[in-house]
Design a protein around this nucleic acid. Structure first.
Lengths: 202, 202
DNA sequence: TATTTTATGTATCAAACGATATATAATTCA
DNA sequence: TGAATTATATATCGTTTGATACATAAAATA
């Protein structure tokens, strides 16, 4: 993405910013529920500009998915990777998940992929591959964090990293569902301590 | 619901059957994605008949949700409640979840509520209450099964029934997500034994 | 400056959307 | 049988949908 000047009239809007706005609309209203008028309104551009820059509705949708994945938008994983002490790391992961599941940034709760995109797997071409690879990459990153701990000696050599990474992932899904179902953060936090213990059990 | 004969021309279709067909359409295509033409086509009735019997699109949607909940459609819970030995019960629950998540009956995978309805919580009035009460009732039933085991003496008196019920619930969500993401049953079954152990850990 | 290239703004397209008016068919009740 | 009641069938309503044709504006290039 070199910044060389291109000929022709330059864009009057920020590409990534518009993409983020589009994502918020898809997130809140779903793929079918998001009309082009919703999208252009939120993005601050007109129909022809949208089609020229992003393609049709489906192409825009896929671009928002890729944008979400690339932007490292999943705060819980980052929280899990950056905290050094493994117990605190698991705990921070869960707390970040709960925050995402209950606090709605940009009018949407939960995880864009887990709560919204996933429902369009059999419906919109190109979504299935993206969801599958997102799951796998997420689990790989979570497992790698456990492996690091094994290398440090904090966890035993036979600690089931991959299995516990999958468990963390599943717990995340549960919290997202409950958040959408109206449960507040305090209620979700009740089990955090017990879950940290279970996840690290050996 | 007495079966007394009513005056006027009788219905030419089966009410519950039509409702089930409507549910399949909503399940596969989502609320916005399901057009009235899709619905009337699958239900085998015309537009006016649909409106006379079920009300508008939203009312029909809510009726399909209630129908799903009342029909005890969640096979995993039933599997968990009917098996006597608690280890096998947990195991059967997980296997039933995996089956639901991967095998698609009526063209849809997963759980109607968890995989489809939940995305319309902030979008369609009346959905939020139904999702919330469905979560609570599910967890109550799961916890009650653990409590029964405590009473039998198979689990210790301080076994955290509610917390482990919530864990089972969350694991369910994770499997549903992976199923939608394209994971096959065999792959999902890898962790079942380990998870049975974790769920019953004390 | 003239040409080329790309982006924007207006205005609008055909198709599909959710929903209904009207007339007719089938039943119960008097 | 005739009045009342409810379901069905046809046809169509006004909106909204996703998507574009066209003319214009703003930049680089020659």
């Amino acid at each position: 993405m070199t910044d060389t000047k291109k000929i022709g009239r330059p864009r009057g809007f920020d590409y990534d910013k518009a993409l983020t706005e589009a994502m918020s609309v898809f997130w809140a209203k779903g793929y079918d529920g998001a009309s082009l008028r919703d999208l252009t309104g939120a993005m601050g551009i007109t129909g022809p500009s949208l089609y020229a820059a992003f393609g049709d509705k489906r192409a825009l949708y896929l671009k928002t998915i890729d944008h979400y994945c690339e932007a490292d938008s999943c705060a819980p994983i980052v929280a899990f990777e950056t905290e050094d002490e493994i117990g605190a790391a698991v705990r921070n992961f869960l707390l970040a998940v709960i925050h995402m599941a209950t606090e709605h940034e940009s009018g949407a709760k939960g995880c864009f992929l887990a709560s919204s995109v996933v429902t369009t797997v059999g419906q919109v071409d190109g979504v299935a591959e993206r969801v599958e690879s997102a799951i796998e990459e997420t689990e790989k990153r979570l497992a790698a964090r456990f492996d690091r701990e094994i290398a440090k000696g904090t966890l035993p050599p036979d600690f089931p990293s991959r299995e516990r990474a999958a468990l963390l992932f599943d717990i995340r899904q549960g919290y997202m569902f409950r958040g959408r179902g109206g449960w507040d953060a305090e209620r979700l936090r009740r089990d955090v301590d017990a879950r940290v213990r279970l996840v690290l059990m050996h």
